[in-house]
């Protein structure tokens, strides 16, 4: 049985926790393993020893039986620190289908938080515009999850974003070996953006970027003469979308490709998601992607 975890439908659910649970549980039925792997208490598999491996992980019993060195690998289950960084600038408030990019990002962040806490991982929250607004450190207990959910529910899109300066601030504040998940529409120069994000992997942080876009941004289906107003700057532009669509889409495509290419080149896990994509599908894509990455 499949469920349609449509963002607009979820919006009707009363609390963020309920929404998160609804998405996460539906998505993760049968996917109980964490897509994030490290040292763990639970044995996962053997692999052949290579020089440099720690000797404490050698399986002496296997050595006794087979006279070969094998290393024990364990599945990490609880010790992941994850920060969800949600862009709350005014542009994230755009919605052409009832669900704004910010709402969509919130649902996604909530679902991931729920998922992590359910697996005894720590989840935190960062909200930012041109600087960090809120910084909630990751914790793994349920009351903390509720606190994160409450904060996610309380988000309002306003102000201008400056992800370049925010990125360095986040870099300074999060702990090493953490997972950082950024939810943003990324309206920045692709080169600058990649430059700002590429340091996270160097600092042994795992960086995942959810590029949230509205279908209208991707297709520009508006018709007639339009005065477009920039949601962040208030600047207006008079144009005819039908006329400029081809040019716009070509520029947008180049922009998206530049970002994806640049981020992937620096081992940043990049997911482009349109707000008309069902949340479970988005989440599944993410989990499948992660699993493939870690195999």
């Amino acid at each position: 049985m499949s469920f349609n975890f449509d963002a607009a439908l979820l919006k009707k659910l009363s609390s963020m926790t309920l929404r998160a649970r609804y998405v996460a549980e539906g998505t993760l039925s049968g996917l109980h393993k964490s897509p994030l792997r490290g040292s763990s208490l639970e044995f996962a598999q053997h692999r052949q020893y290579v020089p440099g491996d720690e000797l404490k992980h050698l399986d002496w019993k296997v050595y006794g039986r087979s006279d070969r060195f094998y290393i024990k690998q364990y599945q990490e289950e609880t010790n992941l620190r994850c920060y969800s960084a949600v862009d709350t600038s005014a542009s994230m408030g755009y919605s052409s289908n009832g669900v704004s990019k910010l709402e969509y990002a919130s649902y996604l962040a909530a679902a991931l938080t729920y998922l992590l806490v359910q697996q005894n991982d720590s989840a935190g929250l960062i909200t930012y515009r041109d600087s960090i607004d809120r910084f909630i450190p990751p914790r793994s207990f349920r009351a903390h999850m509720q606190y994160v959910m409450d904060n996610l529910e309380d988000l309002r899109a306003q102000g201008r974003t400056d992800i370049l300066s925010v990125a360095s601030e986040i870099g300074r504040r999060i702990k090493k070996r953490s997972l950082l998940i950024i939810f943003s529409d990324l309206y920045e120069n692709p080169g600058e953006l990649v430059k700002a994000f590429k340091y996270f992997p160097y600092l042994r942080n795992d960086l995942i970027v959810f590029h949230i876009l509205d279908p209208e941004e991707l297709h520009l289906n508006q018709r007639g003469d339009v005065d477009y107003v920039d949601m962040e700057t208030g600047e207006a532009l008079r144009t005819v979308p039908e006329v400029i669509r081809k040019e716009y889409l070509s520029q947008m495509k180049a922009f998206l490709e530049d970002i994806e290419k640049g981020l992937r080149a620096h081992k940043v896990d990049y997911y482009r998601i349109s707000t008309d994509t069902p949340l479970d599908a988005a989440l599944s894509t993410f989990i499948e992607g992660r699993k493939r990455l870690l195999l």
Binding site: S91, K101, D185, E217, D227
Partner: peptide, 8 residues
């Protein structure tokens, strides 16, 4: 003429 807010 429509006035439409747009992200960017």
């Amino acid at each position: 003429r429509q006035r439409v807010e747009f992200p960017s």
